[in-house]
Design a protein around this nucleic acid. Sequence first.
DNA 1: GTAACTGCAAAATATTTGCATCCTT
DNA 2: AAGGATGCAAATATTTTGCAGTTAC
Lengths: 138, 138
Amino acid sequence: MQAQIDYLLKQNQLSVTESRKRILELFLEANGALSHADIEKKTDEKYDRVTVYRTLQTFLEKGMVHTIPTADNSIRYALCKDDCKEGHHHDNHVHFICDNCGDTSCLSEVSIPIVKLPNGFKAKEFHMVVNGVCKNCR
Amino acid sequence: MQAQIDYLLKQNQLSVTESRKRILELFLEANGALSHADIEKKTDEKYDRVTVYRTLQTFLEKGMVHTIPTADNSIRYALCKDDCKEGHHHDNHVHFICDNCGDTSCLSEVSIPIVKLPNGFKAKEFHMVVNGVCKNCR
DNA sequence: GTAACTGCAAAATATTTGCATCCTT
DNA sequence: AAGGATGCAAATATTTTGCAGTTAC
């Protein structure tokens, strides 16, 4: 996994630093989305709060992660797949947020269905978020 | 419209106060979602910031409004339709957020398609949010 | 060595809570 | 009159910014 992490960073012209490696590692382990607070908790606040903000911002700008809409006010970030380019995402699957444990998972195997918008609306991105109880919490 | 507003408040056992009436009026006018900031702006900060927070919270608890997921960190609230009960919503349409003007509109005529979740996931609510350019901003 | 990254301090912003006063019923 | 709602003040929490020191390349 460390090789993959290094590769991801270099591919995006970012210096390979400890905090970035650790945060990327968390994303790879998570198979789902993490909020700023999740990351602080999982790193035991080893890194400065500001560093975490800036790291997430950087990953976002490079197109390495994308945000997932949530109905509460916590922004969640998830790793993009390989076919995401800078500023152009193909995050085409449904996300699931567990009301019980709070975990956000990517349901990679569930595609977002096509919907037809009324005349005049020009769609750029589609998001679909389902909440309920995840398979670990039943 | 004033009669409708009074009715809505009374139906939910809330006292009919000026701030609540005005905020409800804004929702009825908007045909879409409003954030806390939107409301402050549209009321010219006539009401205390705290009053707006508490009013939104109250409306939410009574099931008069629901939140709409967004990828930035601004919670947006939209009026529920008549068939929403306290704690049980049927907000079954797609929402559209304009990248240009920031308006969030309810596409009442576009239903959220059914998706089948993997085994073990129990869905409670479905949200679908599309962003792009709205018909006013073309 | 240089540019980029981090951590600290502090500023700016957003949200919550307590309490006295005012308004609705 | 009583209970609930509002506004103000202040406490918390969250996010952003500036800058000096450190690290990656």
